[in-house]
């Protein structure tokens, strides 16, 4: 299941990473319009970015990140062709990861 899309581009020594993940990101506050019952919280809690095996960034997320989250960040010290790995874990213990080469 490819739930993560990664675009990483190195320019002038700075790598810009853009990722899109597909996830419902339920806050736990929303109610089902038919039954009136609360929809349980289901959101990504942690996103980790690794460059050649070293963690460059960790994001802690609450339910207030939009559905199908977008995340972009920049870091130095990577060359084109290096691997960038993004992984996420949600509050139900599920997770996914994907790897892409830096352009």
């Amino acid at each position: 299941m490819a739930s993560i899309k990664i675009r990483a581009k190195a320019k002038d020594g700075v790598t810009t990473v853009k990722t899109l993940m597909s996830h419902p990101m339920e806050t736990g506050l929303r109610k089902d319009s038919k039954t009136g019952e609360k929809i349980p919280a289901h959101h990504i809690t942690e996103v980790t970015a690794e460059h050649n095996g070293n963690v460059v960034m960790t994001a802690n997320w609450g339910g207030a990140i939009s559905k199908n989250p977008y995340l972009s960040f920049k870091f130095k010290g990577a060359a084109s062709g290096d691997k960038i790995k993004i992984s996420w874990v949600d509050n139900m213990g599920k997770g996914d990861s994907a790897e892409a080469a830096i352009k």
Binding site: V14, M25, T27, L29, H51, N54, V55, V56, M57, T58, A59, N60, W61, G62, G63, A64, I65, S66, P69, Y70, L71, S72, F73, K74, F75, K76, G77
Partner: peptide
Amino acid sequence: AEANASPLTSTYQLSAACEPYVSTRIKM
């Protein structure tokens, strides 16, 4: 986001290699 039921939307731990930059989409 100040008025949200739980105000903290996200927090990012940046390593020394990171530029001080993050971009995302939040709910308000």
